[in-house]
């Protein structure tokens, strides 16, 4: 079932992407055609097929519990759009 304009707005909100009213229609069109394209895979019989989330069938490597990263705050925060007293600043957070 093709998407409706409200679906586009909902997904955009979920993705935290502002979308102007005049962008909704063209976005909707591309999304619907993309969904048509990816819908082609529904033709594949995947009964009983184990989903493949990783390229290799390997297990998670574990590292020793050791502190290896020194304090690099100044370097790591050098790109911050707004910072003060070692904190990143953002518009007031309301819980």
């Amino acid at each position: 079932m093709p998407l409706a304009p409200d679906d586009v707005r909902k997904v955009a909100r979920l993705a935290r992407l502002a979308i102007a009213d005049d962008e909704v229609a063209p976005t909707l069109d591309t999304l619907n055609r993309t969904l048509d394209l990816i819908g082609q895979m529904q033709a594949v019989d995947t009964t009983g097929v184990e989903p493949m989330s990783h390229a290799h069938d390997v297990s998670l490597r574990l590292r020793p519990d050791a502190v290896t990263e020194p304090d690099c705050r100044d370097a790591l925060m050098a790109n911050a759009p707004a910072a003060e007293r070692g904190l990143f600043l953002v518009p007031r957070v309301i819980e």
């Binding site: 904190l87 600043l89 007031r92 957070v93 819980e95």
Partner: peptide, 13 residues
């Protein structure tokens, strides 16, 4: 999130 006042903003630690 630290809500003490930073010019009306919150601080992130």
């Amino acid at each position: 999130s630290l809500h003490e006042d930073f010019h009306g903003m919150s601080g992130i630690d």
